[in-house]
C-alpha cells in the first residue's frame, strides 16, 4: 500500500478497465492479482509499460507505472518532481522513502546514485513482493527494503537522512497517523542538518490544505510543485534556500549523477508557501475522512 499516486480514479466497469490518461490507447492485461491484508493489488501490462494498481470499490488507482525497457524513465510527473528534493540537500549520505509502491522513485535514485544508501519502508508485504517480481526493485547494496509502518520505523530509527520521501497511500488515502503534527515532528528528528522532506499530496480536497498547514506548523519552510494531478511539497528547516542556491546544487548533482530527468528545469515550478490556512492535524484530532470528503474550491494556491 504505501507508495503511490492518488491519481484520480479510473472507473472500472464490469467489462474491464477503462484506460487511464497515460494508457488509454494501450492493450491492458492483468498479469498478477494479489489480496494483501490492506489492498487488492493488480499488476497490469499496458502496452510496453507495467502498472501497479490498487482496486477499491471497483475503481482502480494507479500506484506506479514502469517501463521495463528503460527503468530510468519516470512516467508520472509527480515522481519526477519528487526528485527535485535532491536540490534541497546539503549532502547525500542517506535517503529514506516511506511508501515503496512499485519502487519507481527509489529505483530511479538508486540507478543514478548507486553509492547513496536508500532505505525504503513499506507496510504491505505483497507490495514488496510484487515490486521485486515485476518492477525490478531488488534489495541490494545501498537499496534496503523494510516491511514496517512508516511512522513506527522512523520513531525507532537512529540514523538521520538527508532526504525523506513520504508517499504512503493506502489505496486512495493516506492513513491519518502519517498526516499529523506529531508524525512530522518524528520525521523532523530523522532529517539530517541541511536536509529536507518531500511529500506527495493529492490536491483536490480540503485535506490538502490541512496537510500543507501541518507541514508548515512543523518545518520552517514549505515549497510546493504542481505536478499534473498531484502536488509535491518539500519542507526544510534553517535559512531559506534561494533559487540560485537550488539551481547551483541541481547543476552540481546533474554533472555528478547525470539524471535522466534533470532537476534544474523543475525548479521553475517552485512556489513558496508563505502562509497556510488549513487546519493543523494532530494525533488527537485529525478528521481526515471528512476533510477528504470536501472538495477544494480555491484551487491554484
Amino acid at each position: 500500500m504505501h507508495g503511490g499516486v492518488p491519481r484520480r480514479a479510473v472507473a472500472l466497469g464490469l467489462a474491464g478497465w477503462a484506460g487511464c490518461a497515460l494508457a488509454a490507447h494501450a492493450q491492458e492485461t492483468v498479469i498478477a492479482q494479489r489480496e494483501s491484508p490492506y489492498n487488492t493489488i493488480y499488476v497490469v501490462r499496458e502496452g510496453r509499460y507495467i502498472a501497479l494498481q490498487f482496486g477499491v470499490n471497483r475503481r482502480i488507482f494507479h500506484q506506479s507505472l514502469y517501463n521495463p525497457e528503460n527503468p530510468r524513465e519516470l512516467l508520472f510527473a509527480y515522481t519526477r518532481y519528487m526528485t527535485a528534493g535532491l536540490a534541497y540537500t546539503a549532502s547525500l549520505n542517506a535517503i529514506c522513502e516511506i511508501g515503496l509502491g512499485g519502487g519507481r522513485t527509489a529505483q530511479y535514485l538508486h540507478l543514478h546514485m548507486p553509492g547513496v544508501p536508500i532505505q525504503c519502508v513499506e507496510l504491505d508485504p505483497e507490495v514488496i513482493a510484487l515490486a521485486q517480481q515485476y518492477f525490478g526493485v531488488t534489495p541490494e547494496r545501498n537499496l534496503t527494503i523494510t516491511q514496517a509502518d512508516g511512522r513506527i520505523f522512523l520513531r525507532r530509527a537512529r540514523e538521520r537522512f538527508d532526504l525523506i520521501f513520504i508517499d504512503a497511500y493506502r489505496g486512495t488515502f493516506v492513513p491519518f497517523h502519517l498526516l499529523t503534527r506529531e508524525f512530522f515532528q518524528t520525521v523532523k528528528r530523522r532529517v539530517a542538518p541541511g536536509g529536507a522532506v518531500v511529500q506527495n499530496i493529492e490536491p483536490t480536497t480540503m485535506l490538502y490544505d490541512a496537510a500543507i498547514a501541518t507541514l508548515k506548523a512543523v518545518f520552517d519552510h514549505v515549497d510546493i510543485y504542481q505536478a499534473d494531478g498531484n502536488v509535491v511539497a518539500i519542507a526544510y528547516d534553517g535559512p531559506v534556500k534561494g533559487q540560485r542556491q537550488l539551481r547551483a546544487r541541481a547543476a552540481a548533482l546533474q554533472s555528478q549523477y547525470n539524471f535522466r530527468h534533470p532537476i534544474a528545469p523543475m525548479l521553475d515550478a517552485r512556489r513558496v508557501v508563505s502562509s497556510a490556512r488549513g487546519q493543523v492535524l494532530t494525533d488527537d484530532f485529525a478528521p481526515v475522512e471528512s476533510l477528504r470528503a470536501m472538495e477544494r474550491h480555491n484551487q491554484r494556491q
Binding site: P37, Y38, L123, D149, R151, I152, R170, P175, F176, H177, T180, E182, F183, D283, D284, A286
Partner: peptide, 12 residues
C-alpha cells in the same frame, strides 16, 4: 483506535 494508531500503526 485513534489513541493506539500513532503508536502501533494502522495495520490489521
Amino acid at each position: 483506535s485513534r489513541l493506539l494508531t500513532p503508536y502501533f500503526g494502522s495495520g490489521i
